[in-house]
Design a protein around this nucleic acid. Structure first.
Lengths: 335, 335
DNA sequence: ACAGCGCTGTGAATCGTTTCAACGATAACG
DNA sequence: CGTTATCGTTGAAACGATTCACAGCGCTGT
């Protein structure tokens, strides 16, 4: 039933070694032989067994990518960037979705270790990088995605989230807003913490400006809607006059909630800015201001760093890349 | 450097067979031995080599899912449903993104065959299912996702797209619109063709109603925007008064284009309805009417069918599940 | 005393591919 | 003609986990 190289070899009257060569180094084999073997492969419907291949080779041809939320278009774009770069080098990307949960992240990490992936790209859920550091020490290159780390020498591709938060809130303040609410969470996610830090700095620079933190349990549209409803339910005087959401999903959710209340207008009564500048941001009820990150490039670069490290382990190539975020002003902040 | 069962066996003073038993059938091993072996595994940092495991076992523990566009929240949700069901049975899902390209679909199919996946869930790019049929005959169960097929006995989980198209356009017509444009493509994608077919039927039922087909090359926000710009550029008299987009991404894009023109209002001048009812649909400039599909359930059910087939190959269990779409009316059609 | 049983644990064989030293045939050279 | 090089091919030895027939051991009941 199952066709192996042995069968192909028999059918083509050559040795298994030759079949393997045809598969992997055809230039080492006489054209006529290649032809004969190819023919046999075709006829028998032979499909190489990757497990055996990997076992023998000792390594796989894949790279793991663990993201916080595969449903977020931002990460979808990062993944695409990663795939593109991987494909250029004949590798494939295994995608894992941690769903912002540490246990799921661990499960994927374990799964991918068993699969002997060549390296791991990960947007960590928490700040406990000990596990990742151990992974790296055990010989698996790790590149942090959209997350920076000063101490450990894990690779990283990040965007300056503190700056992004600073830029976003400075923009809100520059339009005259003073009572800013930060929507985001869980705080364990570095991006969230950093963007909040940036927001704090911006607020600290302006006399009379205040920052309220509304902590959410996830960065989803649904959570955003709930947060929005919470704010909406308050007496007008107690509402913030500007909201900075830690990502566009939250912002979109909040906007949905705001939109359902006739006398609460964006940006008249409340300004709103998100983060990531996903495709949908410019199509929302009130087009959403946001902070853009080069998603595709992040994924592409992360794989690139990984491949460099694989090429020359411990070499003195680039290990860390940092991009700058970019403010995108639209109507939701009065733009 | 690399730790194998042999090393663990030596460290725990047992045979390799026992280590394997501890790993796979701990109840067959005396508690004290389990303890000793577990200890050794811990100390040596042993990680089971999945390639060797698979090679010996002859099969893997994973299921493949190939979607048209991983960046589309609809498919992200389908994937999540699939993962959920797979996880319940201790399997994992390998995700492939065909990007609506046949060659990429083939490449993934080949890759997954080499990986000896237990089965393949696929939203096919074209209508040429010969390759999939061959795959099934070679012993790999196939379940079509969001795509029905009458002839071949491949499994399928589908939503009645003809009905969905019919419902969407009937709704447009019921609000008095007569000049309907269909935005979608490529036509090779079954969903697109079916939704168009439904649209045709609805139009045929109403005196004086016309249907114009605007064929796009992809179902993306960007393509939607381009199509919208095209329509926008026409003299008002030649514009359709209603647009049915084959999915929400296109609709969102079209809406972005329409929004940039002050005297072209949705739904006043042009009504717009999408398909899939993604999370973002209710948050768009003008909240988007759409046709909802049970995305999570589709993925969940698809894996369920696959597992049934694996459990009892050729058995007389369910092979086909069909869901009904549901019209969701919002402002973009005057709701 | 011993057959029979249940419980643990053993270790060699196996999965399918890749790798590599070695070999025969042929060509190139002085 | 003998010596080297080159080329194409061979065949057996890995890779690491799992499986399975079987052995050792302690008990029980006769």
């Amino acid at each position: 039933m199952v066709v192996s190289v042995r069968d192909v070899a028999a059918a083509a009257s050559v040795s298994v070694g030759t079949v393997s060569n045809v598969l992997n180094r055809p230039e080492k084999v006489a054209p006529a032989t290649v032809e004969r073997v190819t023919q046999a492969i075709e006829e028998l419907g032979f499909v190489r067994n990757d497990a055996a291949r990997q076992l023998r080779a000792g390594r796989s041809r894949s790279i793991a990518l663990i993201v916080l939320d595969a449903g977020n278009p931002f990460f979808a774009e990062v993944a695409r960037g990663a795939e593109d770069r991987a494909a250029e080098s004949g590798m494939s990307v295994l995608l894992g979705n941690s769903d912002e949960r540490s246990d799921r992240e661990d499960a994927y990490l374990e799964l991918f270790r068993e699969q002997r992936v060549n390296g791991v790209l990960v947007t960590p859920v928490g700040d406990d990088l000990a596990r990742l550091e151990r992974l790296r020490r055990s010989g698996v290159p790790v590149v942090l995605v959209d997350h920076e780390d000063a101490e450990l020498d894990l690779g990283s591709v990040s965007v300056d989230d503190v700056e992004g938060g600073y830029v976003a809130v400075s923009h809100l303040l520059s339009t005259g807003r003073r009572r800013v609410a930060f929507l985001g969470g869980p705080r364990t996610i570095r991006q969230v913490a950093d963007r909040l830090e940036g927001a704090r700095r911006a607020v600290a620079e302006v006399e009379g400006a205040t920052l309220e933190v509304v902590e959410m349990s996830a960065l989803s549209v649904l959570q955003g809607r709930e947060a929005g409803e919470l704010l909406r339910a308050r007496p007008a005087a107690e509402r913030p006059d500007a909201v900075f959401a830690a990502n566009d999903l939250l912002a979109v959710g909040a906007l949905q909630a705001f939109t359902l209340m006739a006398d609460l207008r964006v940006p008249r009564d409340i300004a709103l800015i998100g983060y990531d500048d996903i495709d949908f941001a410019s199509a929302t009820v009130v087009p959403l201001s946001s902070v853009r990150q080069p998603a595709h490039l992040i994924g592409y670069t992360a794989v690139d760093l990984l491949l460099k490290e694989l090429d020359d382990p411990g070499g003195d190539h680039e290990r860390t890349v940092r991009f700058q975020p970019q403010l995108v002003v639209r109507e939701s902040t009065g733009g």
